[in-house]
């Protein structure tokens, strides 16, 4: 059981303030998103309808500390069909952002952040790669992109 005192009533409003979260309170829990979700089909932990419900109720910790918050594939199948114009993938992105800000960053994401800061891309370009590319007649790739690090540092995005 969860008591009303444990709910964080501002949580829903905070999500509504994020990019793409505007329409979250229009959700009438029809389940179209859950029935559309290719992830939910194979992993019952992830259910967008239930996640939105939890947000609107104010279950902040239960959402942000969860393992399911990372499971949205962002495929947009749900949002194309949502009858109430709720931007479900954007809401899931907002929740992942909030989880990251709260320090619950998923290790995979942390690794990607490090790679981006170091190389400006999520794969390191190794010497082998450029050699191989030249052999195939492809142009060499730049090894780094400092500007990406500037963006991430400026916005305080850390692993």
């Amino acid at each position: 059981m969860i008591t009303e005192r444990e709910l964080d009533k501002k949580f829903g409003l905070e999500v509504a303030d994020r990019y793409g979260g505007e329409a979250i309170r229009r959700c009438f829990s029809c389940g179209t998103c859950a029935a559309s979700c290719p992830v939910g089909r194979f992993d019952s932990r992830f259910n967008p309808r239930r996640t939105i419900r939890m947000v609107l109720l104010g279950m902040r910790d239960q959402v942000l500390k969860s393992d399911f918050v990372w499971l949205c594939a962002g495929c947009h199948t749900c949002s194309e069909r949502c009858p109430q114009g709720v931007h479900i993938p954007d809401i899931m992105t907002a929740l992942k952002n909030m989880a990251t800000e709260a320090g619950y960053t998923h290790p995979t994401l942390a690794k990607q952040i490090d790679l981006l800061k170091d190389f400006g891309r999520v794969f390191e370009v190794e010497e082998y790669d450029n050699k191989r590319r030249v052999k195939m007649g492809l142009p060499e790739l730049k090894l780094r992109c400092e500007e990406v690090k500037i963006i991430l540092d400026k916005l305080g995005v850390n692993s």
Binding site: C30, G31, T32, C33, A35, S36, C78, R81, P83
Partner: peptide, 13 residues
């Protein structure tokens, strides 16, 4: 009486 099964949820496809 009719035994119709009611499913709460809007079909996706």
């Amino acid at each position: 009486q009719a035994g119709v099964v009611f499913l709460e949820g809007r079909p996706s496809e």
